[in-house]
Amino acid sequence: MVQSLNRLKESPSQTAGPYIHIGATPNHSGIEIYGNGGDLGRTLVGPDAKGERIVIKGHVIDGGGAPLKDALVEIWQADSAGLHNSPQEKRGKADPAFAGWGRQPTDGVTGEYRFETIKPGRVPFVDGRLMAPHVTFWIVARGINVGLHTRMYFSDEAAANTECPVLARVEHRDRVATLIAARGEEGGRAVYIFDIHLQGEQETIFFDI
């Protein structure tokens, strides 16, 4: 025998199941509870938040091409200066008017998710090089046994995307496109469409972080 490392094992993940919306967005699912605050993560951007207002929307699509209507999507991102609204952020103080964390269900009829947020600034990689602006995504649903981590990058940041040390790591270069959302417009505001494909030709790159 040797000394023990006395380390615990992470609790094993289990699927979020078909009723994740009851637990995570109860008001959306018709259970009016928790007072006026509503569902956590519904609003990211305060009135005084700095940066460009954008919309991110899309679908989570299964291997048969059908959108998931029972998924939950969470995002986490830096503010317009590249700082996170988190005590773990040691590089400076983030914009207090921007939460950085958002949570939305995919719609029970159409399967669409939608976030109103701001365009993030750049954040350094482990070695100090700047990563391209990105939004971190986490997706859970019935049939997903461990929550899926991915990232959304911006189509109008071609130069930054080219030098991003994370995107540079993708061996099969045609897959980089699965992480890049196309910029469009909706009522004078930038809209990025980010569809997440769980399987198939266009399978999104998911990360083991």
Partner: peptide
Amino acid sequence: LRSPQRALLSLENTISEMTG
């Protein structure tokens, strides 16, 4: 139909994941 089939891309933690 909901399980990714490609290998996950290994990524050391960056500030984007170490914050919350």
